[in-house]
């Protein structure tokens, strides 16, 4: 520093130091932010969350598993509804229980009833129920991005 005035900062040095540190902090912060943002992808090469299934009549009474979207399609007479097969605990695929009522997870033993509600185990939330609708050409559309209450079903 030019002309030390007994330990006190003169105006010129104060401006220099302030400007220098601000520039350094800004450069570091901006680089860190850009680096972090760089790691968040803008385009995902993942399957569509809306899935077009077959026609309603192609599915038998009871539970049918749709592996492409890891979802159960449940037919009860003329009522069709869907329950997600992805365990809300840690993402394993649940299986239908041996007695045909409800589901269980092989990873950490969570149990769900036929509506997806948690019966026992570590799962914190019920299995979500994706919306089921009919497309214009008469085929089923299951939309995992839309959740409906388990009582809601498509009547065909």
């Amino acid at each position: 520093m030019s002309q030390p005035t007994d330990g006190k900062l003169n105006r010129r040095d104060f401006v220099k130091l302030t400007f220098g540190w601000c520039a350094a902090l800004f450069a570091t912060g901006a680089s860190a932010a850009a680096g972090a943002r760089f790691l968040i992808p803008n385009v995902l090469y993942e399957p569509d969350r809306r899935y077009k299934a077959l026609k309603p009549d192609d599915y038998p009474e009871g539970i049918t598993f749709l592996p492409e979207i890891r979802t159960f399609l449940i037919r009860n007479g003329d009522k069709l509804r869907a329950v997600s097969a992805v365990c809300t605990h840690l993402g394993c695929t649940v299986n239908p229980s041996a007695d045909g009522k409800g589901f269980h997870c092989p990873c950490h033993g969570s149990q769900f009833d036929e509506n997806g509600a948690v019966v026992s185990g570590p799962a914190p939330k019920p299995l979500p129920c994706p919306a089921v609708s009919l497309s214009r050409d008469g085929r089923l559309v299951i939309d995992a991005s839309q959740q409906v209450p388990p009582t809601q079903a498509l009547v065909v």
Binding site: P67, R70, H89, L90, C92, T93, P106, C107, H108, G109, P122, P124
Partner: peptide, 27 residues
């Protein structure tokens, strides 16, 4: 196979203590 987990699905041995805890509560 992205659809069917093995049964039981286990983490590597050094994480099994944590997995045991996680089987009670993930948080």
């Amino acid at each position: 196979n992205a659809v069917y987990p093995p049964n039981p699905a286990k983490a590597p041995w050094y994480f099994l203590g944590l997995q045991e805890l996680v089987s009670h509560s993930a948080f």
